[in-house]
Structures are given as structure tokens and as C-alpha cells.
Design a protein around this nucleic acid. Structure first.
Lengths: 209, 209, 209, 209
DNA sequence: CATGAATGAGTATTCATTCAT
DNA sequence: TATGAATGAATACTCATTCAT
């Protein structure tokens, strides 16, 4: 499982295989249900019924419903940051890097759509320190984009007139909003969508600048 | 009250002024609470406490909590569609129309942010027929944008290479995602943001097309 | 109802008769159950089943189980303090006052034994500010006894060698511990018991001092 | 360990040393927790966490949580009865015997306060036969006091007017209630308290008999 | 001896909704 | 119009106990 790459590294060392397996089973099922019905509307009972275990089992693996949500968020954002770093290392120009990130994020909706949707939608239900922690990581991801844009401006690849912060938000709007409407099982593929967005984002829509 | 323009039209014909007033008071208070805490997390008790009335009063004006949410959605989207039509009538070129819509939507977050956020966030809690009805109106709004883009391509204002549907989604991504991060009380004004977005959307970010 | 004397004064002015009645019914039933099974072992379900109402009803009248316990404690200790003041006013000498308090407390076990037992036993389950509040009132009651003893020493009624604080605790030990074993339905009456305790407390058990 | 004197006698014959040790470790830890939080509020999980073992270990040594409580009670009351017998053997007059018992019980709160408090507070949680068994031993302890008083009356040491049963309860009230308020770490020592109580109990508080 | 995953019945509390007044 | 007492079903969470390993 791809999403387990980074998370797994740390976990497997001190948690038994079976514990990790059951934890991941609970997470996988929860993600499906959270996506369909929303976090609040999905009860622990729903989750354990779907898994054919009892509530006690759930609470053996997770301290609380909120902790489960936090685990989902942490897995997702940690993996995303890891892949962002890889991609930065693999590419040099701002255009290449932004294109790669566009592909990364939109293909994520194709590959692990439910997980992405839960991540983008349900953050509000994290409490106190947890929401701060996730927010910081999301900011980190965004600031990397901002920095790529800033460097692109400096190197002359991108327009001088751009505000890097606003432009980073524009970039994230395109990718993050797409989970609202993009259907990976429809006629339009993720590759086509990210290509189309790449053109719009880089060249704009008007005929002459 | 601006949001009452279209809604009022139908209502005032068969409902007494005072009924409309109390209904709007409940709606206004609910929007504030829904924005702060979310729809599910806000109880009827919260709402009536904030208004210093009793539950019975609430249920005299609304059949259910969901019906209240539906009313909020209907008011919002009807008003938006009305203003979209006005703006289409006032402008001729695709660029002008798109620019006007960009301003409309982003300034909405400044002027009636809570209402916009509740609209964009809580649609999931509408039930079957209601969610279909709202979805149809949202589609209607989007298809107008699509049509403006299509005409812009035909008239040569916009690039031939564009897919009007995807481009309309890109447009809506910029506007609709901004409620997630744009703070109307911050240093950046809505006017500045919509200007920046206009540039990015029309001209792109790359130095040479 | 005697225990409602002071409590009632304030309540009846702003709460409807029927609310007070249901509240008192819930309190009365809860006291019975708390006495028999203990606070923790008595569930809200037990209470509402005994009353043939639903859980919702319980929570309409009480914010929480702990709040119910607090109400029971407040009613009890407020009434006790009130009666202590009356009795102080009615008597002059230390002997008379202590005798009257002995009667008061032991007859309380006869008349409203369950209430007294719950009060003496379950204070531990009050939280934070509530337990402090009740503790302060219990201390107040005790300090009045201490003061009566102190004055008795000064006037020459009581032995100079006494430590008023320890003596007050000795007094309260006799009365408060009796709920553990004294059965009001047995052969020994409350009047006989308080008489016997009065003799022991004033004259001691040894043949010559 | 003092509290193991009598208990140990029987146990060591058929249980391995290590079993007894682990059992006593569990008991010691449980007493601490029961005292701080109460029996019901302390979970097996709390206990085993504090000991850094697992639930399985607990259930290897005790059939149930209630059985653990019973063991605590049995150890305590058996030890108390044993020391009461010793003290009866060591002293002859009623005054000496009662004074010795007063010291015994109040110093117990100083030396093994938690154990005493758990014993006095949590008996209610013993089930049927167990609670009967403990009650019988507590009665036995009380009846020895009663008998000492009876003999004191006969020998002319104590007042003829006393009811031995009531007087024994008065005695136990002084000792047993003290765990509610007496703080062994405060300025007042157990020796001072038992001396003060001895005077009050023997000579009373009034200036002339 | 000891583990720890799993159970199942329980707990306090919440809340949208109804309805007699 | 409005009240507010009552419902009933749901919710997150706890915990003593069991048992295969």
C-alpha cells in the first residue's frame, strides 16, 4: 500500500504485524464510510459493523474517534510531504516541479480518492493540538509551492508580476477543489485533467497576454 | 437585506411580514452558528437559545433542521443566479463577464462570508430531493460560466485549445476554494485577490505563452 | 416536605410548580436508589425506569448525574445549616445547644435516613467546585459546633482541658457514624440513642473522672 | 510487612513465595488506587498499568476484581482481630484495654491509612457471601469491645448506667470516623488524637459529672 | 506464568422532533 | 403564535472478563 510507505517505516519497528494490520483495516473501512457519509454521520457502530467486530475492538486500537481521524490525516499528509520532497529532488525548473505536483495531487484523487476527500473535508473535526499539527504540515506543503514559484520568478521562468503566496493558493485551489467534482471513473482521466490545468495555469485562457 | 431580494418575491405574497422576519432572524442566527460550529454540531437548542425563544417557535417556522438548511441554500443560490443574470446582461465580452463573476464571488466571501461558507460546506446534509434541487441550480450557475467561455472561444477572445467544461471548473475552483483560506479581515482585500486571480486566470503564470 | 423548606423558598419563585414537582420526584427516587446501590452503581437508566419516564426527561431537569448529586447535597446541607441556626437561637447554654444538635442529627437518620446516608457517603463523587462548595458548608456546620464548645469552656460549663476542634470532631463522629449501623426500625429509638450518646459525651464512661 | 502476619501463615503453606509476592504487589498497588479513586472508579487496566504487567497476569492471581477486594478486606480484618487478641492478653483492666484499642485503631490510620480507608469505605462492593463473612468478623471485633465494657461495668470500673452495645458503637464511631478527617501528615499526631479521645471518652466533656 | 486481542453489555449524555396547552 | 415537557433512538466510550497462544 502506497500510503503506508512513510508511516510504516516507524510503526513496524515497535508494533506487531497483526496490530498494524487490524489498525489499517479499521482505517481503510473508516475512510470509505467517512467519505460516503461524513465523519460526524459515521458512528463507531457503523465502522465496527462493517468490519464485523465489536466496539471494544475499535477502542483497543484507537483511543477515540478523533484519534482515528488524526491517524488518517497524519498518514495522508506525511506521505504527501514525502512525495513532494522526492519530486523536488527529481526536478530542477519551476515549471517541471509545478507540473509534477499537479500530476501528483490530481492523480491522488484517482488512486486514493476517498482518503484525499476525507483529508480535505474533515479536518475541521480535529481538536486542539491535532488540528494545529495537521495545519502546520499543510502549511509546510503550501510554502514549498510558494518557494518554487518564488524561485521561478527569480530565474525568469515565471512572470515578475506574480505574488508567490496568492499564486500558491491559486495552484492549490485547482488541485484541492477538484475532489468536489472530478470523477475518476468518468470519461475524463486524471492525466487529461492535470494536462488541461497545466495549460491553463501556465498560459492562461486569454488569446494574447 | 440583499439576500432577500429574490426569495422575498415569492414569499411575501402569501406569508405575513412578521413571519418572514422571524424566519430571517432564525436563518441569520443559524448561519452564524453553522459557520462557527458546523451544521451537525449546532443543535436546535443552540439556535433557539441564541434567539431567546423556545424550540416550539423554531418548529413553527421550519418543518425540520434540514428544511432550515435548505432555505439557507435556496436563498443563497437563487440570489447568486439572479446576480449572475444581471451581470451577464450588463456585460458583453467573455473577459468582462468572467471578471465580473470573479469579483462577485470573491467579494461575496467578504460581504457575506458565513453564508457562503455554510453554502459551500454543508450541502452534504441536504436530503435526497433537496440536494438534487440545489445541485441543479449550482450546475445551472456553472453552465452559464461554461457557455460564456464557449462564446469567448468562438469570438476569438479565448484560446481555441480550451475545454469549456474543464475551464469552468478551473474558474470555480479559484473562487470556491478561497473561502477555505481567504480572511476578509486580513491585509489582502477581496478586490486585490480577485484582481490577482483575474491576471493568473487570463494570462497564466509563465513568462512567454 | 421538611427538606424543602429553605430550598423551596428560592425555587418556587422562578420555577413552575410542575417543574419543581418532577425535579423532586427524580431526587426522591434517586436518593432511594443511591442509598441502596451507591451513586456509581445506580445508572440513569435505573432512575428513569423506577420513575417510568425516559432518559430525555431526566436530562431535561438535570444537566448531569453529578448535578443531581449536587442538588441532593445542597438541599441537605442548606437545610441542616438552617436548622442549626434556629436551634442556636432557641438555646443558650453549650449543653443545651449540643444536646439539641445531637437530637437533630440522630433523628435525621430516623426521619430522612436515606438522604442523610447519601449525603454522608457519596460526597466523593462531587467534582471540583461542587465538592469545594459542599465542603465549605460542612466546615461551617462543624465550626459552629466548635464555637459552641469554645464558649462552653469559657463560661465554665465544659472542661478547660478540651481542645475545641478535636471535641467537635468527636461530636460529629458520634452522630455521623451512626448511619452506618443505627437502624431506625429496630428496637432502639433515635431518642434513646441520642440520650445515651448525650450521657457518654457529657459525662464519659469512667466511674470517677 | 506487618499486615501479612496472619494472612501469611496460611498462605505460605501451599502457595509459592513468588505467587504470594506478586499477589501482595497487586494488592498494595490496588489499595493505593482504590484509596485515591475509589473501587468502582479504578479499572483493572489502571492496576495493571501501574504494575507494568498485563490483564492476563491479574486474572492469573485473582478470580475477579471483587475477589481482590475481598482479599484486602480479609487481610485487614484478620490482622486487626489478631492484634485485638494480643492486646486483650497483654492488658487486664477495661480502661487499659480500651485505651490500647483506641491507640491501635487510630495509629492504624497513621501507619496504613490507605488500607484502613479502603476497608472502611468499600465494603459495600463485596458480594453476598463475602460481605457476610467480613461483616461477621467486624461484628466479632465489636463484640469483643462490648464484652470489655460489660466486664468493666461489672468490676466497677465503668458506669453502671452504660448500655454496653451502644457504648461499643460510640467507641467505634470515634475511631472509625476519624479516617474521614484525620490527616496523619498534619500538626496533630495520632498519639495526641488518641489521648484526647481517651479523655473525652472516659471523662466526658462536662465540668462536673 | 503471562500475553494481549476480542467481547458484550453497560454508561452518561445528546438531540431532533412532537404535542397538549 | 408560542411554550416547554416529554420522547426515543442514537452517540462515544468503558470495562470486567475470557481465551487461544
Amino acid at each position: 500500500m502506497r500510503y503506508n510507505r512513510t508511516y510504516g517505516k516507524f510503526v513496524e519497528e515497535y508494533e506487531k504485524e497483526s496490530v498494524v494490520q487490524m489498525k489499517n483495516k479499521i482505517i481503510a473501512t473508516s475512510i470509505e464510510l467517512f467519505e460516503k457519509q461524513g465523519f460526524t454521520e459515521t458512528s463507531i457502530q457503523h465502522i465496527v459493523d462493517a468490519l464485523d467486530v465489536t466496539k471494544g475492538t475499535f477502542y483497543y486500537y484507537f483511543q477515540s474517534k478523533e484519534q482515528l481521524l488524526m491517524d488518517i490525516h497524519t498518514q495522508y499528509i506525511d506521505d504527501l510531504l514525502y512525495r513532494q520532497q522526492q519530486l523536488i529532488a527529481e526536478h530542477r525548473t519551476a515549471k517541471e516541479r509545478l507540473t509534477a505536483m499537479l500530476h501528483l495531487l490530481i492523480e491522488d484523487i484517482e488512486i486514493q480518492g476517498a482518503r484525499a476527500r476525507v483529508f480535505l473535508r474533515e479536518m475541521r473535526h480535529l481538536i486542539d493540538t491535532n488540528s494545529v499539527e495537521v495545519k502546520e504540515k499543510r502549511d509546510e506543503f503550501r510554502l514549498v509551492i510558494e518557494e518554487v514559484i518564488r524561485q521561478g520568478i527569480e530565474t525568469g521562468e515565471l512572470l515578475d508580476s506574480l505574488d508567490p503566496a496568492i499564486t500558491a493558493f491559486a495552484f492549490l485551489s485547482l488541485t484541492n477543489y477538484s475532489y468536489n467534482w472530478f470523477n475518476p471513473h468518468g470519461a475524463l482521466t486524471a492525466a487529461q485533467l492535470s494536462d488541461a490545468y497545466k495549460d491553463i495555469f501556465f498560459k492562461g485562457i486569454a488569446k494574447e497576454g
